[in-house]
Design a protein around this nucleic acid. Sequence first.
DNA 1: CTAATGACGACAC
DNA 2: CGTGTCGCCATTA
Length: 115
Amino acid sequence: MAKSDFYQKVYKIVEQIPYGKVTTYGAISGAIGVRSGARTVGYALNNLITHPGGEKYPAHRVVNAMGQLTGRGHFPGDSMREKLEQEGVSFKKEYTVDIDKHFWSPVEAAENLSE
DNA sequence: CTAATGACGACAC
DNA sequence: CGTGTCGCCATTA
């Protein structure tokens, strides 16, 4: 059983993030329906990687509004940056991706849940 | 139930 | 997108 539907929604969206694309916590939270639950999204991802099999989710494609890899600390080494860089994502800084260039709208994924 | 925390966001300077 | 502050939601103690 899910501890909260919020988590499940986040899982679904993160799981549907396309290759070479990145999205933000606020965008996901907004797509789900929460106005400003960005922090909760990060919390959900934290539980996601902790969850068995959660490593298959491209959580490394989720960054904050500034494109900074705020969650890199939860990944082993710099695997997060390595993956994004390998997928063709442009980096403005060592731990900052060009969010404005590779931004992906999770809204479509959220609507896909209401199918 | 209240307080504190967290992979954040928006706004003010 | 520089730095600083307050607000947001859900979970845990």
